[in-house]
Amino acid sequence: MNAYTAPAAATEPQDAAGRPPVRAATPADAEAVIRMRSEHVLSEPLSEEWIRRCTDELAPRLTEQGDARAFVIDTPDGTMAACALGLIHSVLPAPAYPRGLAARVHVVATHPDFRRRGYARAAVSTLLDHLSGVEHVTLFELHAGGEAQPLYRELGFTGSPALMRMTRPAEPAPASTTEGSPTWLPPEQYAETVLKATAFACLYFTDEDDRPLQLHSVYSPAHPWQLVGGTMDKGERPWETAVREGREETGLTVSGPPRLLATVYGLPGTEWPYSTIGMVFDGGRLTAAQIRGITLDPQEHDEVRVLPLAGWKALMPRRDFARLSAVEEARRTGEAAYFGTWDWGNE
């Protein structure tokens, strides 16, 4: 994580051409961006609780699948000198924005020790170029203070006398009328306080000699060998996800009935900001002809391999192999497994 702390010295970071070295932010930069916003943009800094909540909200949105894009400039000691954050959203299309995409420049901040060096201009310009050139955004909006308005005018923004703004806070929950009884929150407020988790479902295939079958990933060097499966789509149930992923990743369609072999749980970590819950179902024993007929999606996997369980140990991270072993034992014994330590990034 690019931690936000006060720079030790105002040494000016530059790239080989003498320009501020702007880079794309990742989910690991979320907290530093939020702290820059808290300290240098908002009129009143956020509490640590709100910094945590905002970080948890922003981190997954900074992924390729998310709707947030940010560009930052680091100091020589690795802290953040400046940042620019944009949020993409949909609007009804019009001739000026035919794809119906707009972006709000939500945060532009520079640490006081690094101001008047062109860092804000560099970060915002890179953000706008990316949003228009890569994301195909053509409508941009921002809220600019008086000091920043000349910069934004130079970049092409114009003022709008029609812009109006209102903040309407949620109604506070009514106080409990009975001493010692709980105060019930509205469902949408209570939902913000509970555990957030992503879910996945997998199929455990073996050959006719009960040797585990796995696929080699082209996108995850940290988890090179994987069971057939993936993340649940909205509205799916676990078995539906397992069947769909099996079809998409191998060309095989399993018919069921579903037989659960293991439930997997992982705490959040450096690789992913949410807890993970997964279910591994028995995909059955495949014949040699079925294995030869597997069709891979080249964007996800490039090899199918079948090995005795012991043969997988040297090819996988320790925790991944322990999960595979638990699934194999569940198939062999007929007793479903619970694997509760498949944590993210803590190998």
Rank of each mutant, 00 (worst) to 15 (best):
R305Q: 13
M80A: 06
E208H: 04
L185D: 11
L142Y: 05
R305I: 03
Q299A: 15
V254D: 11
H106D: 13
S90N: 08
G284T: 02
T26H: 04
V194A: 06
L324V: 04
T193M: 09
A144R: 03
P27F: 04
V228F: 10
G156F: 00
W344R: 15
V105W: 00
G159V: 11
P98V: 03
R318I: 04
G235K: 14
V254A: 13
G345R: 08
E329P: 00
G340V: 02
S255F: 06
L131R: 02
P257M: 05
S38T: 07
T26I: 03
L46N: 01
A162V: 10
E271D: 12
A170N: 09
S181E: 12
A28F: 02
L46T: 00
W344C: 14
E171I: 04
G334N: 09
P95W: 04
T270V: 11
D297T: 11
A191Y: 09
H89T: 13
P13A: 05
E248P: 01
P169Q: 06
A197G: 01
L92I: 11
L151S: 06
Q299E: 11
A173K: 00
L315C: 07
E329N: 07
R318Y: 15
Q14W: 13
E245I: 01
V264H: 11
A96K: 12
V124D: 08
R323W: 12
E236V: 03
P174H: 10
T183W: 05
G230D: 07
V137C: 07
W342C: 00
R323A: 14
T26L: 08
V107G: 02
H111P: 05
P150H: 11
T250I: 08
D77Q: 14
T55A: 09
G269N: 03
A162G: 14
P317A: 07
A314L: 08
R117P: 00
L315Q: 10
Y97P: 00
P174W: 10
S275F: 08
R285V: 01
S181V: 05
G118Q: 05
T250F: 08
T126N: 05
V327T: 07
L85P: 01
A222F: 02
S176L: 05
E49C: 01
L185P: 00
T341I: 04
G229K: 13
G251N: 09
M279C: 05
S132Y: 06
V22H: 08
V124T: 15
